[in-house]
Design a protein around this nucleic acid. Sequence first.
DNA 1: CACGAGACCTGTTCGC
DNA 2: TGCGAACAGGTCTCGT
Length: 280
Amino acid sequence: MPELPEVETIVRALKAGGREGPPAVGRVLAGGQVLWERTLVTPLASQFSQRLRGQTLAEASRRGKFIQLSLTQDTLLIHLRMSGDLRVEPVTTDEGTPRPLATHDRLLLLFDDDIRLALNDPRKFGRVWLVTDPNEILSALGPEPLDSAFTAADLAVRLKGRQRAIKPLLLDQTVVAGLGNIYTDEALHLAKIHPLTPAAALTVLEIEHLWLSIRSVLQEGIQSNGASIDWVYRGGDFQNHFRAYGRKGQPCPVCGTLIERIIVGQRGTHFCPVCQPPQR
DNA sequence: CACGAGACCTGTTCGC
DNA sequence: TGCGAACAGGTCTCGT
C-alpha cells in the first residue's frame, strides 16, 4: 500500500495522533506480541517482548518507505510493503472489555498505559526489525528525494550509463528511496517521459525535469495526506489527483488523449502516449 | 554486475 | 450467477 507520502502521513499520526487514534510517541513499552512469525525478521520472536519492555518510544521518523521508531536503547524498523497498516488504540474498550484484534493483525506493540500499536497486514508481506543500529538495514537505500541534499546532478550521476528503462530504475530503492508504482507513474507523466526510455538516453534537461517532477508529486502526495485506494482508507485523497496512475482509458488531464496501460518490469504502468512519446 | 522472472500472500475485481 | 484469471501501493532471491 504505502509509498513515501503514505508512510510520512502514518509517521505524523504516530507523533501527533490521527483521526482514529492517539499518538504512540512518548509512551513506554510493556512488551510485544508476534502473531505471524515471518513478520518479525529479528530478533527471535521469543526474545522480542522481553527486549522491548521498559523502553520508551522516543521518536518516530521515516527513511524511504521504512518507519523508524527510536526507542531508549534500540530502533524498531517497520516496512509495510504492499498491504500493511498501523493502528493505535486502547486495549480496553469503553465498556471495560478487551478490544478484539482485527482480522489481519500480525504484530503488536503493547504500551504500559493500556494502549497498543497493531500492524495489520492482509498479504503478510510487511516486515519488522528490532536492532541496535538501524544502519545495518537502511544503509543500502538511495537518497531521500525531498532532502535538500538531493540535487538534479545527483540523480543524473545515479542514472548515468544505465541502459535499463527509467521506470524500473526509479522503483529501485538504491537509486532513490521512497518511490513506488503510483508516484513513479505520476512523476514520469509530469516530466513527459515515456516509462520505457533507457535512462542513458535522457538529456540533462529531461533529468532536471524528472528530478523536479519527483519532488513535486511526492510533495503533493504528502499535502493530500497520501492516497487511499481500495478497502484501505486512511483519510488521504491524493487518489483524486492522479494524472496517469490507474486511469487507463480516461483522458490525460494535459491533452485529453486516453491514458494507456502497459507492463514494465512486471508492474502495471500508466502513461499518456502523446505527452510521453516513445524514445526514438 | 545488470537484469528479468518467480516467489512470497490474501483479497477484490474482471471477463467469459 | 458462477468461477477462474488477472490484478493489487513491494522487495527478495535466483538464474542467465
